[in-house]
Design a protein around this nucleic acid. Structure first.
Length: 256
DNA sequence: GTTGAGCGTT
């Protein structure tokens, strides 16, 4: 997506891309275009956005037609306050069209801009939203599509150090204790129920179709109700007649 | 409503 057309980059023959960092999340290409246009001929303004949320990622790419104009934009707009934030303008280093830096003048400019951009001090990185986003994406399709975004994912994976919290701990413990309690209370019956449950769990089709509509009954917070009521449909379901259980044949399995 | 290191699209 570019500012001039929705069919990708217009012409990347002899353009010089500038990376504009630290822009506001609300700043759009339309806001940056006039600003950069004042420094020279702007070929395209592109702001990478999140594919899932569609929000701006906080930086933009501005392509100039001439290197000297791009250099001028760096000199003039780098550090300029835009939408309440001071942007950082520098030559784009990576990307589909690496800046063809051959002229000594541009090269010096690049080094200068990089030197200046290095002024920013390192900050502690903790991004909840990104972690959440990546987690969700990973949980849904971990290694299905790892193409060009692989670089991005790895780049952001660096800040996954202190992600593990202590919240799931007690939850797990609580669940485990609850499970143990239920088991000890059920005792002998637990065997047949466990087998029945296991059998149901081994059916992927049912598991896939069930989650949204019918949650697993064993996860019910009040199992004692069913334990007391022997006529409960659940009880019948989980504890079939001993006759059937003892004389279980392959034919019966196919039915259930 | 929020966030803030970095390098890009149909």
């Amino acid at each position: 997506m570019s500012h001039f057309g929705r069919t990708g980059p217009p012409d990347i023959r002899d353009t010089f891309s500038l990376l504009v960092l630290n822009i506001s999340f609300r700043t759009t290409a339309d806001d940056l275009f006039p600003l950069f246009e004042r420094c020279g001929k702007v070929v395209d303004v592109f702001i990478p956005r999140d594919r899932r949320t569609g929000d701006s990622r906080g930086f933009a790419f501005v392509r100039y037609k001439y290197a000297d104009e791009a250099q001028k934009a760096i000199d003039r707009l780098d550090g300029r306050n835009v939408d309440g934030r001071n942007i950082m303008v520098q030559f784009a280093k990576y990307g589909p069209n690496a800046v063809p830096i051959h002229k000594g003048r541009v090269k010096e400019g690049v080094e200068k801009s990089r030197d200046r951009s290095r002024s920013r001090s390192p900050r502690p990185r903790h991004r909840d939203r990104d972690d959440r986003r990546r987690s969700r994406s990973r949980s849904r399709s971990r290694e299905r599509h790892v193409h060009d975004r692989d670089r991005d994912y790895r780049r952001r994976s660096r800040s996954r150090s202190r992600s593990m919290s202590s919240s799931p701990d007690h939850k797990s413990h609580r669940r485990a204790r609850d499970d143990v309690k239920r088991k000890s209370r059920s005792k002998s019956r637990s065997r047949s129920r466990s087998r029945s449950r296991s059998y149901h769990s081994s059916s992927p089709a049912r598991r896939s179709a069930s989650p949204p509509k019918s949650p697993p009954p064993q996860r019910s917070p009040t199992p004692e109700k069913h334990a007391n009521g022997k006529d409960s449909p659940l009880s019948r379901s989980v504890s079939p007649s001993p006759k059937r259980a003892s004389s279980r044949s392959p034919g019966s399995d196919s039915k259930e």
